[in-house]
Design a protein around this nucleic acid. Structure first.
Length: 422
RNA sequence: GGAGGGGUCGCAUAGUGGUUUAGUGCGCUCGCUUGGAAAGCGUGUAUGUCGCAAGGCAUCGAGAGUUCGAAUCUCUCCUCCUCCGCCA
């Protein structure tokens, strides 16, 4: 959620942000109008409460019938005004939560992901002297991925990693996870379900349709996380953290559950877009200073790059444009990895600074010079199952085998995945 | 799933309808004292919100209710602990 004071003081700033994000501007005047109303009513309510407090203090025991009449009158007025107050506050806050975070100055302005700006390309696109296959075909031939069976028992957008494929997947996750614990990140394996209120505080979906936006169990008020971020960023909710403990860095491992509603027809072949995958993720809390948090964002991006280079994968980094920026994000970098089977770079990681957008609802603060301030929160993918697919596609050989990147070999216990019949 | 007991201003506690603008102890702040320290004495010590300010208002796990008045009574929920059941 954005700061209502910012909207009161600099509505133009919010207007520009909304325009750049391709959003409707009318909310701003609506909010300001209701807020005006809210504040007037608030002062009326507080005056009445003050009167009520003074009256009851003056009784010092049983009130006389005259005093009773007066206080009952105040009480009744108060009830009416308090009703008005809470309804205008509710309307205002519902509108306020529609407003996304303000993009950083250097975020490119654009409509959608087509307008994202490439600013770095690393690694050589592999040249094959044979027709390279995609991970679905390779996986089937090598018996390391089974999508057909998954479709039979779970439906579309599921898959098995099997045999050496399953070992490879775990090796990638474990290698990535411990790479960051060695760098001082605190490892986390979080709960994979959170209360709807917790999900709301993460700032992605509005209250209206939380249960529908995610896989959920309404009877128990639980939502399956779409990323470990949703269970780790709220770890510090309602806390005032010690300034000396910053930056607070977590590396998480969790399954991620996504409905992928509205993506019918997209990526129907293979496991690029599935309802369930595993992910190693970074979540970092920094002091509330964009110089600090934006620098941290680059540090996190650098961790992603190191890993991609160790896995010998060619990639591009793009800056997400305003139209492609998720609601809580102030800035976002995406890493797009080369997929020979797709003949394209596809998104495998992202790296975002959400500033204080999430900490405002989560109420996560730090005491600085006696004042409590909202912290900055960042999230970044370190690795997901998608990168495993990239490894399979990029490291395929003419004989149909797959070479395992050196750094993973101590974890897989094998250097190559060979076809059974060779 | 069943039974019982808790959640109070950093920590520990008091508080069973109006003298609570929430008391006390510990911790911490500043000061006095001292050669220095400890002890002692004094002072301060939550958050949010509205307001230029003075100040007001709200918050005793959360929400709703009863009442002229709620930390205190009622209801719902959350959460922690103990025991039983189940279980990797």
């Amino acid at each position: 959620m954005i700061d209502i004071n910012l909207l009161r003081q600099q509505p133009e700033l919010i207007k520009t942000a909304l325009t750049n994000r391709q959003k409707d501007l009318s909310v701003i005047s609506q909010i300001l109008g209701i807020d005006e109303n809210y504040r007037t009513t608030l002062s009326e309510v507080e005056k009445l409460r003050s009167e009520q407090n003074a009256l009851s203090r003056s009784f010092k025991g049983k009130p006389t019938s005259e005093q009773l009449i007066k206080s009952t009158e105040v009480k009744n007025n108060l009830k009416i005004k308090e009703g008005e107050l809470s309804s205008s506050e509710k309307i205002r806050d519902n509108l306020l939560e529609e407003i996304p975070n303000i993009p950083s100055d250097d975020t490119p302005i654009g409509k959608d992901d087509n307008d994202n700006v490439v600013f770095k390309t690393v690694g050589e696109i592999p040249k094959f002297d044979f027709q390279p296959l995609d991970h679905a075909d390779l996986g089937e031939k090598l018996d390391i991925i089974d999508i057909k069976k998954a479709a039979q028992l779970s439906g579309s957008r599921f898959g098995y990693f099997k045999g050496q494929g399953a070992v490879l997947e775990m090796a990638v996750m474990f290698y990535a996870f411990t790479k960051l614990t060695k760098k001082g990140f605190t490892g986390m394996i979080p709960p994979v379900m959170v209360k709807s209120d917790t999900e709301w505080k993460c700032g992605y979906a509005s209250n209206k349709n939380l249960m529908g936006a995610y896989y959920s169990i309404p009877e128990d008020d639980l939502i399956f996380i779409s990323s470990s971020e949703h269970a780790v960023v709220p770890y510090h909710m309602d806390e005032i953290l010690d300034q000396k403990s910053f930056p607070i860095k977590y590396v998480n491992y969790s399954p991620c559950f996504r409905r992928e509603a509205g993506t019918y027809g997209k990526d129907m072949k293979g496991m690029l877009r599935v309802h369930f995958f595993n992910k190693v993720e970074m979540n970092v809390f920094t002091l509330p200073d964009y110089k600090i948090s934006d620098a941290m964002c680059l540090e996190m991006l650098n961790n992603e790059e190191e890993l991609m280079q160790e896995l010998e994968l060619p990639y591009q980094i793009v800056k997400a444009c305003t139209g492609d920026l998720p609601q809580p994000n102030r800035r976002m970098y995406d890493i797009n990895t080369w997929f020979p089977g797709q003949n394209a770079y596809r998104e495998t990681q992202s790296c975002s600074n959400c500033g204080d957008y999430q900490s405002r609802r989560l109420n996560t603060k730090v005491k600085i010079d006696g004042k409590n301030e909202l912290v900055h929160i960042l999230n970044a993918t370190l690795i997901t199952d998608r990168a495993v697919l990239a490894i399979i596609e990029n490291h395929q050989q003419a004989d149909g085998s797959i070479k395992i990147p050196k750094v993973l070999q101590p974890y897989t216990g094998f250097e190559i995945i060979r076809p059974n019949n060779s």
